[in-house]
Structures are given as structure tokens and as C-alpha cells.
Simulated scan of single mutants.
Amino acid sequence: MTVASPYAPELARMPVTTRVLPVRGSDTHVWEYGSGGLDDEARREAGTLVIVVHGYRGDHHGLEPVIAQLNRPGYRIVAPDLPGFGVSTPLDAVHDLDGYVDWLRAFAELVRAESPDARVVIVGHSFGSIVVAASIAGPSGIPVDAAVLINPIAAPALKGPRGVMTRIAIGYYQLGAAVPEKLGHVLLSSPVMVQVISVTMAKTKNRPLRRWIHDQHHRYFSAFANRTVVLDAFRASVSNDVSEYAERITAPTLLIAADKDDITPLAAQHRLQEAMPDARLVVLDDVGHLIHYERPIEAAAAIDAFLEPAS
């Protein structure tokens, strides 16, 4: 039985539309949210364009709790399913970091052209933080006015607080690659493994919220196109991190980190902030790698304060 979202009332108040954009060989499914309407004229008149990039093995649903708190006049929020995940079809390229960066740059160019006068803000969670960082770094990066990285992967995952767990995960994915394809797909989408991952990451002691988080993972965590996609993207997620691009990210950047994140230690988040030319760090207590599920209200408040500073 589906567990009702605690953030459903806020999300229900936001107009939403869906469409499909062909980008780099992927039929990329896109959800657009905005208080001013979502036709072509409303897109042109948007004052702020927010592009939202979800994490590994998720889809656009994961960041909807944060999106639900950002119902602001003039905001156009665009949330695609990454190619090969959710209902978006795979790329016509390898699903490594380069493939996703090339896709995101092309995708951003398309949606920016529809809102030519808008302030552009790009948001990435977890693996999405790596894709966003690599996509906006340097002179060839996506031109943005601001960036927000939620649970940023600030250091190599193998060096995180649960580096041993990461190595176990690597072994799990290696096994999924070694067995015949049909069996590999079954193994990689195993409800037992999804439950183990969900229980490990959730830190809240609120039982209804935990049930909803587990339900979300079971509903969406195994929505990937095929074994190759999920294995390529996993390798990319553990082989790269945001710190590689920090010095070349010149846009003002908000880092929203957690004190109990199993993937990145808090000290690495502080080092990441120091390495970036213009970064602000907000740390949320008593939460781990699921800020978007457990603390979306606080995350959205931090984003509001960052984007609309007091004059």
C-alpha cells in the first residue's frame, strides 16, 4: 500500500505539467512546477528558472518535497528524470560523468532558451551534486546565477564515514555485473537490498516519516532502464566528487550538508566550502544523506535565504 507523502498538501498547491524533450539521444521526461502557469508565455516571463538534478537511482520524485516548499511567484522549476532513470530513456552515450555532463549542458541550454530573461539557479542532490558541479565549472560550464548542492559529495565516497559500506556496495554492483543480465537486473533491483539501503540512510526517529521514506525508495529506487545504465552511473558516483571542480565554480553556491551523512564527513564539507571562490555552508543537525526527505522545509528555507538575501 502506498504511504501518503507528508508534503503532499504543499505540492498539490503547485501547478505542474509534464513533457518529453529529446536530449543527447534520451527521451528526457520533465516535470515543470510554477505558480504563474506553465504555457510558453509563462516560461518566457519567468523571473527565476530553477533546474533540479536528482541523485543516483532516484528520479524527480526525490526532490519534490523541497520543490513543494519553493512555491514562489515568478519561479519556474524544471525537474527531469536523469537519462536511464525514472521514465527517461538512456543516452546514446556511456552513462558516465562525461555523458551526464554533456546531457545536462544540452538540457540546460534548451530550457534556458525558453526563459531568456530569467535568473538561472541549478540544484543538485548527492550524485546530482557531482553532475551539477562538473557541468557549471570553468569557462565552458553552464552559465548560472547561483547553484545549490544538497548533501554534496564533497570527497571520495571510499573515504567517507562509511567507506566500508561503500566497498560492500561496490562488491554488490560487481556481482550484479558478473551474473547473467536477467539475474543481474533482479539482483540490482532486489527489494531486500533497497530496504537495507533505506534503513541505513534514514536517520529520523519519526516512524510515519520513516515508513514513507522506505516506501519512496521501494517505489522509485529500482526504476532504471537496464543493468548497464545503473552500473555505469554507480561507477561515476564513486569515482568522482565535487571537490575536483570546486576551484572552477565561480557562481555563488549554497552547500546544504548534514552532520550525520554516511557518505561525506562534515570536515570535508568545510574543506569544500573553503576551496570554492564563493560558497556558503549550511549544516542541518540530526539528519544524514536524506535531507530532501527528512528536512526539506529547512533546506528550502536555506535556499530562500540564499537567493533572496536581506537588502
Score class of each variant (00 low, 15 high):
L231S: 01
T2F: 06
Y7W: 09
D102W: 11
V242F: 03
L70K: 02
A157T: 13
A299F: 11
A305Q: 14
V66P: 00
I303H: 01
K205H: 08
I150K: 02
Q216E: 12
A258S: 14
P116N: 08
P309K: 06
R211F: 02
V283Y: 04
G34W: 04
G128Q: 14
A202H: 02
T18P: 00
R295F: 01
T166G: 00
G84H: 11
A310N: 09
P161L: 13
D286V: 11
M276T: 01
A134H: 11
R105E: 05
L82G: 00
A233Y: 08
A299T: 14
N240E: 13
G171R: 13
A146D: 15
D261V: 15
A225I: 11
N71S: 05
T2H: 09
F107Y: 10
H270K: 11
T89M: 13
S115G: 08
V94Q: 04
R24G: 00
Y293N: 05
T28P: 02
P139I: 08
N206Y: 03
I150R: 04
P252C: 07
V238K: 04
S26Q: 05
P191T: 07
V23C: 07
V164K: 12
Y245T: 02
G141K: 07
E274T: 15
Y245A: 01
V282W: 02
F127E: 06
H29F: 13
W31T: 01
S311C: 08
E45M: 09
L158T: 12
W103C: 02
S243H: 10
R105N: 04
L188H: 03
V16K: 14
T28L: 13
D117Q: 14
H185Q: 09
G138S: 08
G176K: 03
T166Q: 07
Y293E: 10
I153A: 05
T253V: 08
T250M: 15
K182L: 15
R219N: 00
R280K: 14
I153K: 01
P161E: 12
G163T: 14
W31A: 07
G74H: 12
Y7H: 02
L266F: 10
A4E: 15
V179D: 00
F234R: 08
P90H: 06
L290G: 03
E247Y: 03
A79M: 06
A301R: 15
S243T: 05
S115K: 12
E64R: 10
H214L: 06
V230F: 01
G25E: 07
A223G: 01
A106N: 08
L91S: 04
